[in-house]
Design a protein around this nucleic acid. Structure first.
Length: 496
RNA sequence: GGCGCAUUCGUCUAGUGGCCUAGGACACAUCCCUCUCAAGGAUGAGAUCACGGGUUCGAAUCCCGUAUGCGCUACCA
């Protein structure tokens, strides 16, 4: 590749940043970074009706969250601006004018209702739907008359009636379309805005885009674009149509498949680095074996030759696993920092904020390897923060033990723990293990009972560490409370 | 309906004519470790490479056809 690579991500601000879209952005970015080229963001806001306030910022936030930076575009500037299509209308008008003048485009006065009717008729007769070209050869004076009388008009491209358009897709190889299957599509809408087709080719040309990497859904409109490049006398860029992201039923990923906004994933506690790693593997692979990679490694190895052509189902289970791997890899301090916003968001409201970073740092290592998503943190650790525990008294009585035995275990623990000078993990272990032996119960039974008493749950981090972090005072208090509610529990001497 | 693209374990994928009696990962199962839950380790089950024809000494890999899926078929992108 002798020319410097210039690629773009061209989202339209019609809603939240969709993961499928972001994946396209990611591949463009990886491609640019791999080749030392430029990654450009261009906002395609040519659909006035569908434009949503705040969408641009949301999309940019999504990119930033993942660590995708752009060399040119909104907030970054660049020499090819403006990077917002609604600020480039004159360029599209000029292009349309040129096409009309050289006979490659024409005004069409057909009202939407007629087109609708025409389509219905075509469908009914099992004809391929498409514009019937009624205005294609309208004499100029007639058009002028309609225009003067106030009729609305659009500009359509005059598609060649015969011939073929072939192009080489970097991922799929040669693709050919019969021009006769391409209808006279609209390039300027009646509101004066261009359609995607016109705007994108004008901008891609003027911004010096060398490669267009976009989702497969665009494959069928590529001949339109090529025809326009030709009519405009532009040299077309190279094309690569990326496989789509699919939902579990293999259809285009959408809301009904679950979360589709990249920001939802952020809020659920996926790490951006895990998300990027996972997304990069949807349609691309290094060697079929290496899956966990740093951004650097991904960039270093990312080539279109290793992008496949089959749509990929967005497999959340694998994402969860990968996120867990990344979480476990975090340094305790880092993990603690990242977890605080989630704790502050999800812990019961009576827990005082702001949380102590020092205290969180004590808790964090106990749950780090047990968490797949950061939003699980509050649920897993709330007993470290709340004063009163609420739980089913039955969990105090370990399997195959009686209420009486449980009472004895709690009393004994209470007494010996009370005399323990330093409440460390090691000291606790040294006192609790022999205690089980003395009481002639299994360690699992004793520890289980104490776990329930001190945490209010049956599954928690290792007992000694947990108790050490909770501290002597709180553990004693909770064991006392356990003794009170024990009355309500049932014996479990009979095998369940 | 038309056009286009695709088709390897449930899922993500490796595979570019012989190394494939098809490899890895997630998920799943069993076992080990173990104070619970995880994590970790080991083992296992799971794909007649959509199907049918060719080409070839030899095909998951090349060609043709069929089927299925998906996408497009807007004054949306």
């Amino acid at each position: 590749m002798s020319d410097k690579v210039r690629v773009r991500y061209a989202p339209s601000p019609t809603g939240y940043p969709h993961v499928g879209n972001i994946r396209t952005a990611l591949f463009n970015w990886l491609f640019a970074r791999h080749h030392g080229g430029s990654f450009i963001v261009r906002i395609e806001d040519t659909d006035v009706a569908r434009t949503v306030d705040g969408a641009v910022e949301a999309i940019l936030d999504g990119l930033r969250w993942l660590g995708i930076d752009w060399d040119e575009g909104p907030q970054a500037g660049g020499n090819f601006g403006p990077y917002v299509q609604s600020e480039r209308l004159n360029k599209y008008k000029a292009a349309a004018k040129k096409l009309i003048e050289q006979g490659d485009a024409y005004y069409c006065y057909c009202p939407p209702e007629r087109l609708e009717e025409m389509r219905n008729e075509q469908m009914k007769n099992k004809q391929p739907p498409g514009y019937d070209r009624r205005c294609r050869d309208m004499p100029v004076p007639e058009g002028v008359l309609k225009w003067m009388s106030g009729m609305k008009r659009v500009v359509r491209f005059r598609t060649p009636l015969a011939g073929k358009t072939t192009f080489h897709d970097i991922i799929r190889g040669d693709v050919t379309f019969e021009n006769s299957t391409v209808d006279d599509f609209v390039i300027i809408k009646s509101d004066g805005f261009p359609t995607y087709h016109l705007a994108s080719i004008v901008d891609d040309y003027e911004m010096g885009i060398t490669h267009v990497l976009r989702a497969e859904e665009w494959l069928s409109s590529t001949p339109r674009h090529l025809l326009m490049y030709k009519a405009m006398g532009y040299k077309p860029p190279e094309f690569a149509h990326l496989p789509m992201l699919l939902g579990t039923d293999r259809s285009k990923l959408s809301k009904r498949h679950g979360s589709v906004s990249i920001m939802d994933y952020k809020e659920q506690g996926y790490l951006p680095e895990a998300m990027m790693n996972f997304l990069s593997l949807l349609g691309w692979s290094l060697d079929g074996k290496t899956e966990l990679m740093t951004v650097k490694e991904i960039i270093k190895n990312f080539t279109l030759g290793r992008v496949n052509s089959t749509g990929a189902i967005f497999n959340v289970e694998k994402l969860d696993w990968m996120n867990g791997v990344y979480i476990r890899d975090l340094k305790v301090d880092d993990f603690s920092q990242r977890v605080i916003p989630f704790l502050e968001r999800d812990l019961p409201s009576d827990v005082k904020r702001p949380l102590s970073l020092e205290y969180v740092k004590q808790i964090a290592p106990l749950v780090q390897e047990r968490v797949k998503k950061l939003n699980e943190i509050a649920e897993l650790t709330d007993f470290f923060f709340t004063e009163n525990l609420e739980y089913d008294p039955n969990i105090l009585v370990a399997k195959k033990t009686s209420r009486e035995t449980t009472g004895i275990m709690l009393e004994t623990a209470l007494k010996e723990l009370g005399e323990l000078p330093d409440f460390t993990e090691e000291a606790l272990e040294n006192i609790l293990r022999p205690m089980a032996e003395k009481l002639e119960v299994k360690t699992g039974q004793l520890f289980g009972t104490l776990r329930s008493a001190t945490t209010g749950r049956e599954a928690a981090p290792p007992l000694f560490q947990t108790m050490a972090v909770l501290g002597k005072e709180r553990c004693i208090k909770r064991i006392n409370e356990a003794l009170v509610v024990l009355d309500k529990a049932k014996d479990k001497t009979v095998k369940e």
